[in-house]
């Protein structure tokens, strides 16, 4: 059982919905992002998505892309991103950390080397946007063998015929992408998301977490109420981009977490 499985078992026992927060490692600089990330569990975050910067984030909107650029300009590397996870683990051994990003930096490092380092750093799962089930041999299967969860995205274009393919080899939770589009774009609508979550739940026992287009505590509450939890990324990253202090960013994160937990 990974920390992700344990966390969701715990939340289920308490009848609580999960709040998942995405922060780009190294944005706006290493020290500040480290401070924000280490503060996330205290702000009510149940699962941390640790963004790995990439020059060409094809599924992301401007907010996340610029965050990645700031991080890379500040000298962020995959090794430094893993170091932030390691630092968090020295103070918190229960909050799951999921690394989220694109395949090339991982492939460039070497899959086996990356997985060994991620495991050692205390990473629990991976979300790699550009690895659909058709490419499972690349990273998904090797990660599962290392007992790292491989969390897959399901989208509005994943129809019932395709869904089993997406759910096979998925573990930890399923990340339902609420809209066709990029991160930080259109608003997610609970009335559309509810039936989709039910559709996926008919085919899996894994928790369904919904992300993309959730920007406010109210939206986090509305979406979490029709799923097992909600993810917020761009809205938090936008606060960091606006130059807010660590305390202000974490206060905003707490308001989002409270929203999701009210659901």
């Amino acid at each position: 059982m990974t920390r992700i499985d344990a966390k969701f078992a715990d939340l289920r026992a308490q009848g609580r919905k999960a709040f998942v927060a995405y922060v780009m490692a190294g944005d706006p600089d290493y020290d500040k992002s480290r401070e924000i990330i280490l503060g996330l569990p205290g702000a009510g975050v149940d699962v941390i998505e640790l963004g790995m910067p990439f020059t060409d984030p094809m599924a992301d909107g401007e907010t996340i892309q610029l965050a990645g650029q700031r991080a890379l300009e500040g000298g962020q590397t995959l090794a430094k991103t893993l170091q932030i996870a390691r630092d968090l683990r020295s103070t918190d051994n229960t909050t799951p950390i999921v690394m989220m990003g694109y395949y090339n930096p991982i492939y460039s490092r070497g899959v086996d080397r990356f997985l060994a380092e991620a495991k050692e750093a205390g990473i629990d799962g991976l979300i790699v946007v550009d690895l659909p089930p058709e490419e499972d041999d690349e990273l998904c299967i090797p990660a599962q063998k290392m007992a790292l969860n491989f969390i897959r995205l399901a989208t509005p274009t994943t129809d019932d015929a395709r869904l089993p393919k997406v759910l096979t080899n998925t573990s930890g939770f399923v990340y339902y992408v609420s809209i066709t589009g990029i991160t930080g774009a259109a608003n997610a609508e609970a009335t559309n998301v509810g039936p989709e979550v039910a559709r996926i739940k008919a085919q899996t026992d894994l928790p369904i977490i919904v992300g993309f287009g959730i920007k406010t505590p109210e939206a986090a509450e509305a979406i979490a109420s029709v799923a097992d939890g909600a993810v917020v990324g761009s809205a938090i990253v936008a606060e960091i981009a606006a130059g807010k202090s660590v305390a202000e960013v974490l206060a905003f994160v707490k308001s989002l977490a409270d929203g999701a937990h009210r659901a």
């Binding site: 094809m58 599924a59 395949y103 946007v129 550009d130 690895l131 659909p132 089930p133 058709e134 490419e135 897959r152 995205l153 399901a154 989208t155 509005p156 274009t157 994943t158 129809d159 395709r162 997406v166 992408v177 066709t180």
Partner: peptide, 20 residues
């Protein structure tokens, strides 16, 4: 059938685009 020329090629896209 997987779109590979030797080790090259493939379908490294997000799930939203896979059905397309």
């Amino acid at each position: 059938e997987n779109g590979r020329f030797g080790d090259f090629g493939g379908r490294f896209v997000s799930e939203t685009l896979m059905p397309l």
